[in-house]
């Protein structure tokens, strides 16, 4: 009985879901900037994944005799003062930057969606307490705390993910809660309750898929924030540590010698900016395509 009903709701959900996505995709395709952003992201993503095989030089390769040279046919982005190929370094740095962006966002996403869904669905006192907690954490000056955290507990990559994820989940929780509160009152949820599905199942199968639009949009807009935060920390010397490298580290190194070797600043800066641009355009495009209202809380 239950499984039959579940099947039925699944079919429903699947059909309406598919048409929604098709709809959104056709709308997104008409937004040129978003498509350019998406293509750039796919390109950069592929380059970063394939870096170990396609990088022109190995990561450790250095040529002290060569020193810093401007862009040339052998070294498209030039070399740094240790004679390391900048293009190779930008590619490897991109792996770290993108990985931080994705993983920290995933952390934020998981906490935020779970928190928001539970608060929004349960309602009542639990909701009040949970959201009150979010308000309090929201009011904390987090940038300052992250700097503090990174200083106090050494500069491990894992901590970086956790620290950034811990900041970024708050807005996500608010958005999801708002969505869930509206969804909860709709008929199909009532129907799900009446056939005796458990709370967890309802949240997982009915609420979260329907709240997906705003979550996707906000996720696309969180990734650039996270990447900026990583670059900010790395720039201050509190983020990624050598020998590992990221775009933030490369920019920070580039600043030191920018008078004589401006390309060391320009290329990593360009790489970071392009990715941030693309993500923001894609996020804006998705917001229009999925018809998510701009309101944040």
């Amino acid at each position: 009985m239950t499984s039959q009903a579940e099947n039925l709701t699944n079919i429903d959900q699947f059909e309406s879901g598919r048409s929604l996505w098709q709809d959104a995709w056709s709308r997104l395709k008409r937004n040129k900037l978003a498509i350019i952003g998406l293509s750039l992201l796919i390109f950069i993503g592929l380059v970063c994944i394939l870096t170990p095989w396609i990088a022109p030089y190995s990561y450790e390769h250095q040529n002290l005799a060569l020193g810093a040279t401007p862009p040339s046919a052998q070294h498209w982005f030039g070399t740094d003062n240790l004679g390391r190929d900048l293009m190779t370094r930008v590619m490897y740095g991109g792996r770290v930057s993108l990985a931080v962006g994705l993983i920290a966002t995933a952390v934020a996403l998981t906490i935020g969606v779970t928190w928001g869904a539970i608060a929004g669905y349960t309602g009542g006192k639990v909701d009040t307490i949970m959201m009150r907690l979010v308000d309090i954490i929201y009011a904390l000056p987090f940038m300052i705390f992250i700097v503090l955290l990174m200083v106090v507990f050494g500069r491990s990559l894992l901590l970086l993910f956790l620290a950034i994820g811990a900041v970024e989940w708050l807005t996500m929780a608010r958005i999801v809660r708002g969505q869930v509160q509206t969804l909860r009152q709709l008929e199909f949820v009532e129907a799900a309750i009446s056939i005796g599905l458990s709370k967890a199942t309802i949240i997982r199968r009915h609420i979260i898929p329907n709240a997906l639009g705003p979550v996707i949009v906000y996720t696309t807009l969180t990734i650039p924030n996270v990447m900026l935060l990583e670059a900010f920390l790395s720039f201050l010397g509190l983020g990624i540590q050598p020998p590992q490298s990221s775009w933030g580290v490369l920019i920070s190194n580039g600043v030191e010698g920018m008078e004589e070797y401006p390309w060391l600043l320009i290329f990593p800066g360009l790489a970071l900016s392009i990715v941030l641009f693309s993500l923001n355009f894609l996020g804006d495009g998705l917001r229009d395509a999925l018809d998510v209202r701009a309101s944040k809380d």
Binding site: S252, L265, G269, S273
Partner: peptide, 22 residues
């Protein structure tokens, strides 16, 4: 405005120094 949002201060600052200062 989009450029402003995507251009972090630690990149914009050095670039401005480079252009207007140096």
């Amino acid at each position: 405005a989009m450029i402003g949002i995507c251009m972090p201060a630690f990149l914009l600052g050095p670039l401005l120094i480079l252009i207007f200062g140096i």
